[in-house]
Write a protein that binds this DNA or RNA. Structure first.
Lengths: 107, 107
DNA sequence: ATTTATTATCGTAATATTGCAATATATAAA
DNA sequence: TTTATATATTGCAATATTACGATAATAAAT
């Protein structure tokens, strides 16, 4: 036990849960907001902005990359992170689909 | 360690993370979908539908209730669960706000 | 009053997540 | 080449989450 029983759910349910899990953290939300309002989205700037240790930020960036929500472009010794616009819109649509297709008829 | 450092984030960031965390589980997604398409949303039906043990379902329902996303109405020895429509729409708006207000300008 | 059915709570085990220090890696600068 | 800077990875400790058996609580049925 301790693990989610993914086998008993549909691919769509698991996919949505995976996406939401990546988003469900204030540090990752803050990172996305910071990246989005910066022209230069250098990793080190994020570390200074957010106030968590550099390895912690690096780990959060890795998780955001795991669902292709952000992309990191190496530029010299720095890495410039940006949001994957296509995926951003796609994920918003998946979430809205869930909210819209889930009928709300109370008993 | 092991805990999220909520102190360093804004109330909005923490609130969004809390909401997404409740949604970020396939069992809870399946529960919401099942409740929504049923006229009778009896707890026991959910247990049989989802395929997880009764205490596990009860715990998931508790988490959904923690953000007022569902309501349980006691009817005899049964409890009839339904989605809180007002909160449902409210939460969808909060999430869309995040997606819309987060500008996507790549570097 | 006793039994049965439904839901909630408690306790516990297994696994996941969060965060950081130490360290590795890689590039730029001196 | 050495040093400094930026990022990633590893290993670990603390806490959170998921799931379930056992049990409690409550109400209907007998």
């Amino acid at each position: 036990m301790g693990t989610t029983k993914t086998q008993i759910f549909t691919a769509e349910q698991n996919q949505l849960a995976t996406i939401l899990k990546v988003l469900a953290n204030p540090a990752r939300i803050a990172i996305l907001q910071h990246i989005s309002c910066q022209k230069d989205c250098i990793c080190n700037d994020i570390v200074e902005e957010i106030g968590l240790a550099q390895p912690t930020i690096s780990q959060h960036l890795k998780e955001l990359k795991s669902i292709d929500l952000i992309e990191g472009e190496i530029s010299g010794k720095r890495v410039c992170y940006c949001i994957n616009q296509k995926k951003w819109v796609e994920i918003q649509a998946i979430i809205n689909d869930f909210f819209n297709k889930t009928n709300v008829n109370c008993c």
